[in-house]
Each structure stands twice: as C-alpha cells, then as structure tokens.
Nucleic acid binder design. Structure first.
Lengths: 128, 128
DNA sequence: GCTTGACCTTGTAGCCACTACAAGGTGCAT
DNA sequence: ATGCACCTTGTAGTGGCTACAAGGTCAAGC
C-alpha cells in the first residue's frame, strides 16, 4: 500500500504520515523499486492506534508511551491506566474551563442590545 | 510605567507584550531616555481588553477586529455581536466534542481491570 | 565612584502538531 | 509520447506564545 492509500484508510494525509515518520512515531517502511513507501497491515494498525489516541486528545508524547506499553502485553497495565486517567483529569479540567467561558460568553452576547458600539455590552465587558 | 510593571498589572509577561507589539496588536509606545518602553493608562486599558478577549478564547485575529470596532463607538455593534456569537457557537462545538471525548475516555478507564497490558481495555479500544 | 543586581533592550530559535508549498521523479492510461 | 495522478525530499509557515543570549540602564549600597 502506498502512502496515499494508507492516508485515506486512516483519515490522515501523506504529509502527516511522513511527519510521524520524521518524529519517530512510525518506523521507516520498506520501499518499492520506485522509492515509494510500501505499507502493510502492521503499519496500518499502528497508524490507526496513533490516530485513535490523537483523536482522544492524547499528546504525541503520550501516544509514544502508550505505543511502547502496548508492545509488551505481559506487563501490568498500571502505566497505561495512569496515562489515561491523567489525561481524563486534564480533559475534565478543560471541560470546566470551557463551560465557565461559555457562560460568560453567553451572558455577554445575550446582554447585547444591538445598538451602537458605544453602548455595546460585549465591548463593555471586554473593557472591564 | 515600564514593561515589567505593565506585565504584572495585566497577568502577562514582558515577552508577551513585546510579542503583541511585534504582531501589531499593541502600538509602539514612547520610550524613556534610556530606551525603555514607557506605558500609560491607554496602553494598560488596551492590553487589559486584549487579555480579557484572549482569556475568553477569541483568536488574535478576532481580538484585532474587536479592537478596531471598539475604537469607533458610534458604529452599530452588529459586527461585534457577530464575532462574539460566532465564537460562542465555536465554543459550543468544542464543548460537545470534549464531552463526547470525555465519555469515551471515562468508559475506557472504567473498563480497565488493572491486569496485564495484553487484556487492557484501554489498549484494546485504541487498537480498535 | 564603583559594584551589584534588577530590570530593560534586540534578536533568534523553539514549542506542538501539523500544513503548505516547490521542484522534481514514477507509473499507468491514452 | 503525453498527460496526469501520485510519489519523493526539503524547507518554511501556522498560532500564540516562551526561552534564551548578549548586552544596555539605573537606583541602592558601600
């Protein structure tokens, strides 16, 4: 499978895949006679793993850790759990922040009387 | 007021203030005899406005627009409202995404039996 | 008057996770 | 043989800062 096909199967782009390779998240695949990257099911599975983790908001550093943990199935999954739990707490924090922010924005927009900028509540709130 | 004092008053850093100046968000202030930036209440107010907008999640481009709208108080605040409403919708979208993500993460972490990586639900979910 | 130390100056490079080219090579259909 | 989609490498840009390095300024203390 060439890089474009792999990209389509994983919802990425060729650029992103090459970027992952450059940064060591994906290993260098074998090449065809014409020097094209040639991917198989192993690389597909690995990239799918990476994409799922990224979609769940894990950083590339966390993905790297998760990948190396997944590579040793006999190990305790304590480390995996701790990465995921930490990330969950981080997401909870962000959710809280965003909810507060939303409330403020909502009030601001609701209070706007659609008059002149001089009396605009939005500008007033921002001006303090 | 020198840059450090302005930074302390606005919860920023001197680096950030200089960055805002470089990118045209803040104008170049007058200088003291010793070539130090010399800020007054106008700049303080402007920076506070910027910080509030940034804290509410507006992009720098949006802040730029809001600032130029705020500078003309006789104008209709339609444009202001539209920027804020658009941003609110964007925040709502992000909130939705984050809530979904949190649910998935929560399930993943809850299902983990704290055994070996080989049976780890977290790894399984990521592997698909 | 001289030193110390906190602050300031400019300039450059780095962060994350991509994204967007440019300039050229490959491979298949017409 | 030509066109076209795809691939290659390399480099630079995005947003919103952040982190230096190498040097200048200024007030306080000795």
């Amino acid at each position: 499978m060439k890089i474009g096909a792999l990209a389509r199967k994983t919802g990425t782009t060729a650029e992103t895949i090459r970027y992952y390779e450059r940064t060591g998240l994906l290993e260098e695949p074998p090449r065809t006679a014409g020097n094209y990257r040639d991917y198989g099911p192993t690389e597909l599975a690995r990239l799918r793993f990476i994409r799922r983790a990224r979609d769940l908001g894990f950083t590339m550093a966390e993905v790297r850790q998760l990948l190396s943990l997944a590579d040793d199935p006999s190990q305790s999954c304590e480390a995996v759990d701790s990465i995921a739990s930490l990330h969950l707490r981080e997401v909870d924090r962000k959710l809280g922040d965003l909810r507060k922010l939303r409330t403020e924005l909502r009030h601001m927009v609701d209070d706007c009387q659609h008059g002149a900028v001089g009396e605009c509540r939005i500008i007033e709130v921002l001006s303090g």
